[in-house]
Design a protein around this nucleic acid. Structure first.
Lengths: 110, 110
DNA sequence: AATATTAATCGTAATATTGCAATAAATTAA
DNA sequence: TTAATTTATTGCAATATTACGATTAATATT
């Protein structure tokens, strides 16, 4: 029905899914990579970086901000965005734990 | 329009988004964790593990298989699923490169 | 105050995703 | 062959996501 039955799963599983979802659009990946690349706050020029309209970028930024992965501070008529290091580290630990699960040779049984 | 404009982004960004998307549902996360946990192929009993209907699980398995993260081999009337180690390692490198981007103190400028 | 600049929000259309009942397909067992 | 078992597919309804034009809100500039 278009709605994930999140009550069936653990908090950890739901958390991983929420992070997965936010990385599940290339525009949000590009925004995050850009923030890392300039290694500072970007004030304003995010719309020119990507080929999407201003309301679309604004919406993607909102999702990243809702998850806490970026911070946005008002600076006059502009808003300065940057990575939230604490939250990024926190997210990275959760995702890395999931990605680093180990398998052994028995996996090849079929 | 519900359709991501993937032509605007790099192959790497689109690849990350595709992996993000597949991890963006807790059922798929749970399936993968179960396959790691039992550390072998699971033949049949995936539907009983999760609280979702058989066609729903089948659909999630198909998406994981389409991305190559799991393998499914027919064994009589059952199908045995397991992690595809090569593809998992490949995916892990791509995602880890993305997650391990580094930030410095300037990030806190705002 | 009037205008310009910038970002957020609203409204809407197009498409995607999720979930499952019903059914089909494939193999096994009797 | 017939029935049972298991998984995949189809079709559909409900909801979510993506994108953007139009508008609003907020500050800055003149």
């Amino acid at each position: 029905m278009g709605l994930a039955k999140s009550e069936l799963f653990t908090d950890q599983q739901n958390q991983i899914a929420v992070f997965g979802k936010v990385f599940g659009h290339p525009a949000r990946v590009a925004i995050l990579q850009h923030l890392f690349k300039i290694d500072a706050c970007v004030c304003g020029d995010l719309v020119n970086e990507l080929g999407l309209a201003q309301p679309t970028i604004s919406q993607h930024l909102k999702e990243l901000r809702n998850l806490g992965l970026i911070k946005g501070d008002v600076d006059g008529t502009k808003v300065c965005y940057c990575i939230n290091p604490e939250r990024w580290t926190n997210m990275k630990r959760i995702m890395t734990d999931f990605l680093n699960q180990d398998f052994n040779s028995k996996m090849d049984c079929c």
